[in-house]
Nucleic acid binder design. Structure first.
Length: 1124
RNA sequence: GCUCGGAUGGUGGAAUUGGUAGACACGUUGGACUUAAAAUCCAAUGACCAUUGCGGUCGUGCGGGUUCAAGUCCCGCUCCGAGUACCA
């Protein structure tokens, strides 16, 4: 009976599916003590349309081997699989084809599953999850609400319910509480708090919530039409698609992950992850300890001390409202039309008016922004969308707008009177238009002088430094060009230069800024700050070497101690005071932090080393209120909104522009249908196209948009959540069975039993995205008592990439030359598909023409220099071959070097694929795929098969024989082979050294074949040993051994030392460290005995050639070395 | 630039605390079987020298060092890969 891998693999794959062999059991299913749990998980796959190539299953095979091994070792193993099924590619495809992303996703999942099933994984598919399933994202939305309802207590280092914080505010305001909040959060007392309106309270609370809505500078990718997180950008372009990314201010949901920076950092110590991965996370979090130093600003231009800029009048629902506003504009009421005719085009004393303009969540009929005057016309059919006038006016007033109202009939009947009233009002109002530089640009006009909660002008510049000990070396301050203060402190003389510079800096893409590190640019603002300790004036510059997003966006420049500051000072002829004793800083800065170097020219710091000087400097600054110790993190809050269709909808609606959560009872909030998956014409996200996308607070359901009355029915959020939302908690969902998932993420019992992932395997590309976010959510849910653990993944292994071996042909014109044919002219190297090249690098020319019609007219010169002729050589060869050259590259479609696991399974079987992927090399290392190598492991499986089913001695007699197992005990030799194998393989599997265990199996089978071993005592444990690696053949052999129960939970063989006991050792006999010959000697011999025997040997005498050895080193059981 | 990995035959890779470098495979070559091919089996295979046999020299990126003994430990470099990047 030959090894029929196809039949065997199909048989067992069907059997496993039917019997649910790998279904994990919940703790309550056990009678008595449950088996110990073990959780093995693969990183969540995104089901892409391209399907799997042989690189993908590498990690799955490794985790599957481990999972199966743990099952044999008596664990209740949870080894689930599912799909991260929301995502960009399906949506991009939907945009192109109009097909619903759910449909594409479904098709892709089906294909993915087929491919996975062929490889024989022991997944518990009954627990499958899909992030795009409303039953799943109900809980993603639920977690979002929990985040919204929480704040971070810095003193306790724990997230807590927001209601606790409200209580604190009610009793003592916000001055004492140690809560993580936005930088510009204003202070208020308990009285202030009580006096706030509900909306104001809400506005303040947003500064504390762990997920919050804020205007932030985001990475906008115009080509994808969405915002991207920092980790989704690689080298300044989008990770997916490689499109350019620009900085843009937008109102977005953010996650206050920065609150968890310290815990995310310190938590790494307890994790069994690779050093490089931990390092990557450490760098990403980027902790630096130093001080925040405040420099008073000496020169504000007159009259601008209290101003702050940067307020957009439109609220978060601009997208939705803009459409409405536009509609209103197109269909004005008669009165509106009449008034607009008079107001438009600056007819009224040169004042510019806008109609149907967004302010907060209101659409003002007419507004003059330079005077902050709103004109409302009551009546007419736009009335139905208008709020109660009083509330509306109050809101507008709070934003600094004057409101005058006219009745419909006034406008129509007495237009002149109305205009007169407007004109006199305009003349009365002070003008807010300050930005002289831009006369008509929208941006400057839309800026308002005052916004909520602001008003105290900032009179100091804060700068973060890690070297407060060099404070006396500060000779200038540099601000990022984007810094808020720039426009306020710049003197009139410098205004033009600064504006030009700021504009140029804004235009430069991140990429340009990165590529061009060398050129030093900057400009003086004309303003000065005061040194807090010497009271000397310090010039304030701006320069784009300072990043707005790090620290405070301001640097206290110490040119003697920082190379960039040194370069900058040199370039602009700024003095470079030296604060280091005996160090020459004329050529370059001295950045070393060695304590031996003493500080000089620094008053009370003179003579101190860095370690003493830093705390002393901070102390001195703190005393005068000019500084404090500060720990800074590079980790930024994560933007959580995406302007996309195919993602989780936010359970959020807006009242007065303020976000409200939908009650968790009414979750999930399901994704609405849209006519197209594109942004709306006004630039609103695709959900802006939904006609049924408003929240009825009475009926608690989604209703049609035209029911929005801002009273009972409100607009819903138009953004969706990013890809990492669903994948940040999926591991916990698997802990619960499908039928019991409705009421919770997973039952408490299940969460407590499974705890967290014992082994997580996947690629290293998730180092700063998924792996950081899921740690964040886990810590948060742990704080809030939802989860019993505070880390998701205990042990993590990064699988290395499998590289492809690309095939190339030489091309000149339309003639192609085989490798080995010398070509004199210059030729091009062209990729050809590896599927038409065999393992001997020979090209199947007809096959190539079939899949690539562009080659149909081409000429091929074979390695024997003959012209290939298809007709005279029906087999594709005319006596010579066409050979390609090979090169190792990344496996990718564009390089035509993709190897499909389906093809491998077809030709060699899944067990061969599994073994070969493991055999290639260490799991964590990148290595090239070479299909030719598969024959080695395939032969091994055939040999293994033969060991159990030896053909009868004379095949002519009985033809094919069945399993030939002897019940005789195994020979001493065979037992030794077996136990040697058990020992090594077990050790290897624990060390995740799968490549060496495959070698060990090969050695074992080679030895047992030689020994002609067919003893049950040997072959039974061997089948179990090998079953994690090659499960199909192992099941078949196990059945052949006469077992009716499957092999998957059979006890793992126990290693017995006694079988390895040796009584002799083949000693290497070395002379001066070089092995010359070996001797078999008893292990019972003493050192002296060994020396005597070795010295007496004639080979020893020959080596010594009459010399007397100086020394003889004998390590019993190891080596003999003779020196002399 | 910084941080972390890595470098061993023609190829993928072994070598557990310093103790026989190159396990196990692929590939290649030769042979057996066969009309032939495939499959299978046997043998050789780090380089160089010698070859009738015994054998010898060199050899784990490069240069030093420690040791009876170094792929492994120490010092100094080169190159490759990954991460990160004007982080104050």
């Amino acid at each position: 009976m030959a090894y029929d891998y196809k039949a065997i693999e199909q048989k067992w794959q069907k059997h496993w599916a039917k019997e649910q062999t790998f279904k994990a059991r919940q703790p309550q299913e056990f009678t008595g003590e449950p088996k110990p749990p073990f959780y093995v998980l693969d990183m969540f796959p995104y089901p892409s349309g391209a399907g799997l190539h042989v690189g993908h299953p590498l990690g799955y095979i490794a985790s599957d081997i481990y999972a199966r091994y743990k099952r044999h070792s008596g664990f209740n193993v949870l080894h689930p699989q599912g799909y991260d099924s929301f995502g960009l590619p399906a949506e991009q495809y939907a945009i192109q084809t109009g097909q619903h992303p759910a449909k594409t996703t479904e098709t892709n999942i089906k294909r993915y599953r087929e491919q996975l099933d062929k490889i024989g994984f022991s997944f518990d598919w009954s627990r499958e999850v899909r992030t795009s399933d409303p039953k799943y994202y109900k809980w993603t939305q639920w977690i979002f609400i929990q985040l919204f309802e929480s704040w971070y207590d810095e003193a306790a280092q724990k997230s807590k319910p927001i209601s606790d914080l409200v209580q604190v505010f009610e009793t003592e305001g916000n001055s004492k509480v140690q809560a993580v909040c936005d930088e510009d959060t204003p202070q208020f007392s308990a009285e202030d708090w009580k006096a706030f309106s509900e909306d104001e309270k809400e506005q303040h609370l947003l500064n504390y919530r762990l997920t919050y809505l804020a205007e932030t500078e985001v990475n906008w990718c115009p080509a994808l039409g969405t915002v991207l997180a920092n980790d989704e950008i690689v080298n300044g372009v989008s990770e997916r698609g490689g499109y350019p990314v620009v900085r843009k201010k937008m109102k977005q949901w953010s996650m206050r992950i920065s609150a968890f920076a310290e815990r995310l950092l310190s938590g790494l110590d307890g994790l069994d992850w690779s050093e490089s991965l931990k390092e990557t996370q450490k760098n990403w979090i980027g902790k630096s300890v130093g001080a925040l130093v405040k420099f008073p600003i000496l020169s504000f231009p007159k009259g601008e001390e209290n101003t702050k800029s940067g307020y957009m009048t439109g609220g978060n629902n601009s997208y939705l409202l803009l459409e409405k506003a536009k509609e209103n504009r197109n269909h004005p009421t008669e009165a509106e039309k009449a008034l607009w005719t008079q107001l438009r085009g600056k007819k009224l004393s040169g004042y510019k008016f806008r109609q149907q303009h967004l302010i907060g969540d209101y659409i003002a009929d007419f507004v003059c922004l330079s005077k902050s005057l709103v004109i409302e016309v009551d009546g007419g059919y736009h009335n139905e969308t208008k709020e109660d006038d009083e509330e509306r006016t109050e809101f507008l007033n709070s934003k600094g707008f004057e409101v005058i109202r006219f009745k419909n009939e006034e406008v129509i009947g007495q237009i002149d009177e109305v205009l007169e009233q407007i004109k006199s009002k305009l003349d009365d109002l002070p003008s807010y238009k300050k930005n002289q530089n831009s006369k008509t640009s929208e941006a400057s006009i839309e800026k308002k002088p005052l916004s909520l909660g602001e008003g105290q002008g900032e009179r100091t510049i804060s700068a973060f430094t890690t070297r407060p000990d060099t404070i006396f070396g500060v000779s200038f301050i540099t601000l990022a060009p984007e810094h808020d203060l720039v426009s306020q402190i710049t003197t009139p003389e410098q205004k033009e230069a600064v504006d030009t510079y700021v504009k140029a800096a804004a235009k430069r893409s991140e990429r340009d800024r990165m590529a061009d590190v060398k050129s030093i640019t900057g400009v003086f603002t004309g303003a000065y700050a005061e040194h807090p300790l010497t009271q000397k004036p310090i010039p304030i510059w701006i320069g784009d070497y300072v990043l707005a997003s790090y620290g405070t966006g301001a640097v206290m420049a110490v040119p003697c101690g920082d190379q960039r500051d040194h370069d900058f000072a040199n370039h602009f002829n700024i003095p470079i005071p030296n604060v280091f004793e005996g160090i020459d800083i004329s050529e370059e800065a001295y950045a070393d932090k060695t304590n031996a170097t003493k500080i000089a020219n620094s008053d009370f710091l003179d003579g101190l080393g860095v370690l003493e000087a830093i705390p002393k400097a901070i102390e001195a600054l703190a005393k005068i209120g000019a500084g404090e110790k500060k720990i800074n993190y590079r980790l930024r809050d994560a933007v959580f909104s995406r302007q996309r269709y195919w993602g989780e909808p936010f359970p959020v609606y807006y009242v007065n522009g303020l976000p409200k959560m939908i009650d968790e009872k009414y979750l999930p909030l399901e994704l609405p249908e849209v006519d197209e998956y594109l942004p709306t014409e006004d630039g609103a996200p695709p959900l802006g196209r939904a006609t049924e996308w408003a929240w009825d607070t009475k009926a608690n359901q989604v209703v049609s948009n035209n029911k929005i009355d801002h009273n009972m029915v409100f607009p819903l959020e138009l953004n969706t959540m990013p890809g990492w939302a669903g994948s940040s908690w999926y591991l916990f969902r698997y802990m619960e069975e499908q039928d019991n998932r409705d009421q919770h993420i997973a039952s408490e019992e299940a969460l407590n039993y499974w705890k967290n992932v014992d082994l997580y395997i996947g690629g290293s590309e998730h180092a700063t995205g998924h792996l950081l976010y899921s740690r964040f959510w886990t810590k948060f849910l742990n704080d809030r008592g939802v989860l019993p653990v505070d880390e998701p993944f205990k042990k993590l292994i990064n699988q290395g990439m499998i590289l492809g071996e690309s095939a190339f042909v030489k091309r000149i014109g339309n003639t192609y030359y085989s490798e080995g044919v010398d070509v004199n002219e210059d030729f091009q190297k062209i990729h050809v598909d590896v599927s038409v090249v065999n393992t001997s690098n020979q090209l199947d020319i007809e096959g190539l023409k079939k899949i690539k019609p562009e080659f149909s007219e081409a000429k091929f010169i074979l390695s024997n220099r003959e012209l290939y002729d298809a007709n005279s050589s029906p087999l594709g060869r005319s006596g010579g071959d066409f050979t390609v050259s090979r090169e190792v590259e990344k496996m990718s479609k564009s390089k035509f070097n993709v190897v499909n696991p389906d093809d491998v399974c077809e030709e060699y079987g899944a067990d061969s694929l599994r073994l070969y992927e493991m055999f290639l090399g260490p799991i964590e290392q990148a290595k090239p795929w070479n299909t030719a190598g598969l024959s080695g492991v395939h032969n091994f499986l055939k040999k293994l098969w033969k060991l159990y089913s030896q053909a009868s001695p004379d095949p002519s007699q009985g033809g094919e024989s069945d399993f030939q197992i002897s019940d005789e005990p195994g020979s001493k030799e065979s037992l030794k082979t077996l136990h040697k194998t058990i020992k090594k393989v077990t050790q290897d599997i624990e060390d995740f050294s799968f490549n060496t265990s495959v070698s060990t199996f090969m050695i074992c089978v080679n030895e047992l074949s030689q020994q002609k071993c067919n003893s049950r005592e040997i072959l039974e444990p061997l089948a179990v040993l090998i079953s994690p690696y090659a499960p199909h053949i192992a099941e078949e052999l196990w059945e052949g051994l006469g077992h009716s129960e499957g092999i998957s939970e059979v006890d793992y063989p126990v290693f017995e030392e006694k079988h390895l006991k040796e009584d002799s050792k083949t000693y290497p006999i070395s002379f001066n460290g070089k092995m010359r010959f070996t001797m078999d000697l008893s292990l019972d011999l003493s050192k002296d005995d060994i020396e005597e025997i070795v010295m007496a040997d004639e080979r020893t005498q020959k080596q010594l050639d009459g010399r007397t050895p100086k020394k003889v080193i004998i390590v019993p059981g190891k080596i003999v070395n003779i020196v002399g």
